[in-house]
Simulated assay, not measured.
Amino acid sequence: MNQSGRGIFISALLVLLTACSAVGSDFRPPAYYQENSQGDSKPLVGQSLFGDNDQKIAAMLDHRVALPQLNRVAILKISPDNYWRHYSDNFNQLSDSLVSSLVMPLRASARVYDASFLPAMLIPAEYNLPILREAAARFQADTLLIYSSQCQTYRRFRFFDENKSRAYCQVEAVLLDVRSGIIVQSIASQEDYDRPPASDQYNAHERDKQAELEALAKALGEVARQVVGFFEQVPVLGASQ
């Protein structure tokens, strides 16, 4: 599928999806593991069908996720920034709300001592998980939250009333355990926001952008809520499981 076709598909998907929804992967349940005669938990074992990488793949599938009691979460946005931050002070405030809607709920978690963006000087020109994992380790982050966002604004034109528009934003995120290199959670969040009423403060395009920023802030807030919920479930590293 070419870039144009992919954009049309994603736009259509955003409309079809429930306006306010989020789907996050579940934590692996203890029942996944079987107990041997000594009472130790061992992962389920399946028959291998391939050769060279079987041992590595088996180790990744068998890995039992555990994180420190207190964690640093490094955050990395991999989609282009389009926040109009330098447009006006009002949009500066809206752009800042995007950061606070993601960072502040994470910092409020009892399992998180710090949540902050990965320093720009550590971010490679081309992304791949091994390099990003090393960059997060240099930042002494226990987990790396990688996310991308995409927004669309739709308008309905009317003859006798103000034109209506609504912004839809989708955020996709993964949480990487830096120690193991395992992606321990994935999240997809979709939110919408109606364009604010007309005023002298904003023109039509500015109001569309305001709605987009508000929808994006809501979606990022839901991502943060899902990550905090994950931290509440994951065992403490080094504790008996």
Rank of each mutant, 00 (worst) to 15 (best):
N2Y: 01
Q3W: 01
F9A: 15
S11L: 05
V15I: 07
S21I: 05
A22T: 15
A22N: 12
A22M: 11
V23W: 13
G24I: 03
S25A: 08
F27L: 04
R28H: 03
P29F: 06
P29A: 06
P30W: 08
P30M: 05
E35R: 15
S41F: 09
S41L: 14
L44N: 13
L44M: 03
V45D: 03
Q47I: 14
D52P: 03
D52A: 13
D54E: 11
M60Y: 02
L61M: 04
D62I: 00
H63N: 10
N71V: 00
L76M: 13
K77Q: 08
I78H: 02
I78G: 00
N82D: 15
N82W: 06
S88R: 14
N90P: 01
F91W: 13
F91V: 11
S95M: 08
S95D: 07
S97L: 07
S100Y: 14
P105H: 12
R107Y: 04
A108S: 13
S109P: 09
V112E: 00
F117G: 09
L118S: 05
A120W: 00
I123D: 04
P124K: 07
N128E: 06
P130L: 05
I131L: 11
I131C: 01
A136G: 03
R138M: 09
R138H: 12
A141G: 04
L145Y: 05
I146V: 15
Q150I: 14
Y154W: 12
Y154A: 01
Y154K: 02
F160G: 00
D161R: 13
E162I: 03
N163K: 10
K164S: 01
C169K: 07
Q170L: 11
V171A: 11
A173D: 10
L175R: 01
L176I: 09
D177L: 10
G181Y: 07
I182S: 02
I183F: 12
Q185M: 14
Q185N: 02
S186C: 10
E191Q: 15
D192Y: 12
Y193N: 13
S199Y: 08
Y202S: 03
N203D: 13
A204L: 11
E206W: 06
R207T: 11
D208W: 12
D208Y: 04
A211T: 10
L213E: 07
L216F: 10
A217P: 08
L220F: 11
E222W: 14
V223G: 10
A224P: 13
V227M: 04
G229E: 14
F231L: 13
E232C: 00
V234D: 08
V234H: 08
V236G: 03
V236F: 12
L237A: 15
A239K: 03
S240Y: 05
S240M: 02
Q241T: 03
